[in-house]
Write a protein that binds this DNA or RNA. Structure first.
Lengths: 166, 166
DNA sequence: TATTGTTATACTCTATAACTATA
DNA sequence: TATAGTTATAGAGTATAACAATA
């Protein structure tokens, strides 16, 4: 199948020329691949990336308000409502009144919600582990280190560790 | 503004705990930030990331068929049609008959299309440069090096994995 | 019969504005 | 007045099936 390989090489050359000088393209492509892996892992638990993230926050020792969820996940408050409605409808989270602010509602996971989250997190970790298996542990740590300032830019209160070159 | 800082620190802690052990979250977040930068740069040229990518491929020395565009960009062929219709309607690309396959159509940029692409590429590069300015040149190179195998899995050169679901 | 391009459709995700109740 | 949550809606992106022309 020489013709097949030639066609593959052609496509690879097109892709390479497209990526050249466009790191964002690489970022986007790696992201969709990663997303596909985690989404597939979450499907068995009836969750998507959004509902999983909201559930994770609701499991936090210091549970957040919906506004905080919107801020942390960079979602519009109206989108948070939709996700929370779904999770609450399935008995995974509750909206509790905020003692310090009558407008605000605190999101807390139910015991069933925590159970679902524990299992989902396990499977997500396994899926991510499989996805990043091409990289060594040191490389993964380095990737995280490089991505963090890009993911949390500007007014980030947490210090960004300066790099140690290889 | 102590209360503000406390609230920020709280949100940061929530985000940190969410990211912990979830490299995909960092990837997704860095991607949306990068996307926002490039999308803003493309807007002045009447382009979006998709149409920009298709136009870039149409400017290639060895112009691709629509099928090849779909493969390289991992888009469904029907989605390629929509983008090409738009670009062709604005006189930026042409659909030429493929001499070797009557079913196929070769995408070629017009001279105006090449002009638009040149200017757009310049602005995109500048926007990416600004976005990645937090990293040194060496760090950017290292990031690209780490992202590449994740974006282009080695075992098969041009995988068109649709949503892999059971 | 298989493939390229096309059309149509439906579903998800995202963005926005307007409303309520509290502050 | 300003903010948290809610509702409603429109747009963009995505997935899928079916079809015509060609292989």
């Amino acid at each position: 199948m020489i013709e097949e390989n030639e066609a593959d090489a052609r496509r690879q050359r097109l892709a390479d020329d497209l990526v050249d000088g466009h790191a964002g393209f690489l970022l986007a492509r790696a992201n969709v691949a990663s997303l596909a892996a985690t989404t597939a892992a979450l499907r068995a638990h009836g969750l998507k990336t959004r509902s999983y993230s909201v559930l994770a926050l609701a499991c936090h020792e210091s549970p957040p308000s919906q506004k905080e969820v919107a801020d942390v996940l960079r979602l519009d408050p109206s989108q948070v409502v939709v996700v929370v409605d779904d999770l609450q409808g399935r008995g995974l989270v509750e909206r509790l009144p905020d003692s310090r602010d009558g407008r605000s509602k605190v999101l807390v996971a139910t015991s069933r919600g925590r159970d679902v989250y524990a299992h989902a997190r396990h499977d997500v970790s396994r899926a991510e582990n499989a996805f990043f298996t091409i990289l060594t542990d040191a490389q993964r740590a380095r990737l995280n280190q490089l991505l963090r300032p890009l993911a949390f830019p500007a007014n980030d209160p947490t210090p960004i560790e300066k790099d140690q070159q290889p």
